[in-house]
Design a protein around this nucleic acid. Sequence first.
DNA 1: TATTTAAGTTGACAATGTCAACTAACTTTA
DNA 2: TAAAGTTAGTTGACATTGTCAACTTAAATA
Lengths: 143, 143
Amino acid sequence: MKNDFSSDAVFNIVHCYRLAMRSELKANEIGLNSMHVKCLSFIKKNESCTAHDIVCFFDKDKSQIARLIKEMIEHKWITKTANPEDKRSLILSLTKDGKVLATQLYEAQAKIKQQMLQGLSQEELRVFNKVSETMTNNLKLFK
Amino acid sequence: MKNDFSSDAVFNIVHCYRLAMRSELKANEIGLNSMHVKCLSFIKKNESCTAHDIVCFFDKDKSQIARLIKEMIEHKWITKTANPEDKRSLILSLTKDGKVLATQLYEAQAKIKQQMLQGLSQEELRVFNKVSETMTNNLKLFK
DNA sequence: TATTTAAGTTGACAATGTCAACTAACTTTA
DNA sequence: TAAAGTTAGTTGACATTGTCAACTTAAATA
């Protein structure tokens, strides 16, 4: 068991995760892509959130998020309403269909997560999370 | 410290790593992108490798790798020569310039890695690697 | 030997990422 | 309070990465 680090390994987790999600979701059929999944999951978990919240959480470009929001509105998965606290801003909500979809996404993610974690202990996961967090914090010093 | 899993955390490592590499390399100036970096690093580490080796190692699409190879040849970073063992195949090698570049890439990667690993013990890294490997192996069961 | 599979190339397009310019709204400064 | 600076969101334009298909030539298999 190696105790050196390789970025390839982390890239590989992401790659495999994406493939697994694709397999589980069969998403092409309804015009859903992985960025939609990320946003819908976030909106489901965060009542009354804004585009800006998504931008910050995922550290994505605001134009990218704006486009995704527009697409999701066109698909009638979400709606946006004026934010009473800031006229520049809009509150995002799941539609009825959006809620059904977001639930399906949640279930798919949960299934994949369960599979991913087979054979791993709570302690191992705790260490993994600690290392992950340390790495990202350390990397942010490069900005 | 949490002992639940979130795919977002892993995506975040990758995201931060990419940003750090961009910052460290200033790569745009010479037409270098992150896929070139991956390939050049692989070629540096694997004498007499083929396109197929790269495709397999990174689990990338062969058309994508073919295009990258073509670009790297145009940039005169690598050359390809006939593979004596298989006429369908070609051996990839770094040019003189390519070796200089690959060394610079290695040094940039090493610097970032050092930064990433600040404050982490060998044991923590060992656990991280074990968990990573378990996750990817588990995820591959979805294929 | 005929059939099937594989290495690499190119076509065509999708998905994700990045920077810029802009408007309207909010915050800070003088 | 007005002006200057900053910010939320929108759209333009383009780059990078990813995906599937069709094809030729070579190798492996039946």
